[in-house]
Amino acid sequence: MPTSSLYDRLVALPAPDPGIDASVPPEIIAFNVSVTRRLRSWKKSTLADMAGISLSTLERIERGEKVQPEALDRIGAAFGFEPGYYTAARRPLMPEELAEPENNPYPHIVIVKVSPLDNQAKLRSLAGCDLVVHAPLGGDPEPSSLVSGLFELIEVLAFRLAAGPLLKSSSLGGLRELYRLIFSHLEDMRREGLGVVFGVELDTSSGPPRRVGIVGIAHRDADPAVRARKVLIVDRRHFSGADDQGSQAS
């Protein structure tokens, strides 16, 4: 099940009954396991080996499917959580409690809405950001000339848009040619099996507000639904200390 479907299911979960102990929904477990694993930079196979479960069982967990409680307890133990972290019934926290910093297990996590990078308006929006970063995706491709080339082209576009009329007589070529070059590059990435999505996050964590462009890239073999993603889960610390446009976070 693609990440976007899990997100939709999370949004659709009914509000918990206050004061009543309940088991944790599999969708919330899926989100927690996936985020915790990625924050530790563990591959799925790494977590499965550490927990002593099959890779297929872990994949079912991260899709929000029900599995045997023993498998969830093994996952919790691999993360170093207390027994019953995923399986014990507990009183759900109310919205006002969740807003308290001590109850937020992921203070650096933001959920960014994304869509395919497939038209000029989106390119302009991305190039107009104060910072552009490469957000980690499950199955991220190894660094390549195609990946680095995209960020270089976005940086050139940002410069051209900012310079505007000053470059009318430049030998760098017109914007139309630059857009054509970028779309040709994106097509080369598509032919190599790479999907590209992007979103924009307003970051206020380290000074004046700034627009951060988030670019996710994954190979379709590892993430078949990459272009259908609606959200990316991003660790804000990947860009909190970056200053230059075109910087990438891994």
Rank of each mutant, 00 (worst) to 15 (best):
E142H: 15
R191P: 03
F183Y: 15
D203L: 08
L167T: 02
C129V: 00
R160S: 05
V215T: 00
P141S: 00
L146W: 01
V147L: 13
V200S: 02
V132W: 08
I217P: 11
V215N: 08
L194M: 11
G213E: 00
A162F: 09
A127T: 01
G199F: 03
V200E: 02
A162L: 09
E192T: 07
L167K: 08
F159C: 10
R180N: 13
P136E: 02
L153G: 01
L181A: 14
V196A: 02
R211N: 10
S144D: 01
G164S: 09
E187P: 09
F183E: 14
L126E: 10
L167H: 06
D188G: 12
G138E: 10
A162V: 01
A162D: 06
L194H: 09
I154N: 06
G193D: 03
P143S: 00
V156T: 01
H134G: 04
P208E: 14
V215K: 07
E155T: 13
I214L: 07
L186P: 05
R210T: 01
E177V: 13
L137Q: 14
L150K: 07
L186S: 03
T204C: 13
L178K: 15
L146M: 05
F159M: 12
S205H: 05
S206L: 05
R180K: 15
A135L: 11
G195L: 09
S169A: 09
L172F: 15
V196H: 03
M189L: 12
I214F: 08
E177I: 11
R190E: 02
E142F: 15
E177Y: 15
D203Y: 09
L161S: 03
G199S: 01
L153V: 02
F159Y: 15
Y179Q: 03
H185F: 02
F159H: 14
G216P: 08
V197E: 01
D203C: 09
R190N: 06
E152T: 11
Y179C: 05
R210D: 00
G139F: 11
L146Q: 08
A162W: 05
S206M: 10
L175M: 13
L153Y: 08
V147Y: 07
F159N: 08
V132N: 07
E187T: 11
L137I: 05
S144A: 10
L137A: 12
V147N: 08
R191M: 12
I214C: 05
R191Y: 14
E142V: 12
L157W: 03
E192Y: 15
R176W: 02
L186F: 06
I217G: 08
S145G: 13
P141Y: 03
D203M: 09
S184M: 13
P165G: 07
P143L: 00
E155M: 11
M189V: 05
G173I: 08
P209W: 07
G164T: 01
L178V: 04
G139L: 10
E201L: 15
I154H: 10
G174K: 14
H134N: 04
S169V: 00
S169I: 00
M189A: 07
G138M: 09
S206N: 12
D140M: 12
L137G: 09
V196P: 03
V196Q: 02
L166Q: 14
E155Q: 12
E142G: 14
G138C: 07
R180F: 14
R180Q: 13
L137S: 13
A127W: 11
S205G: 06
V215Y: 08
G199Y: 02
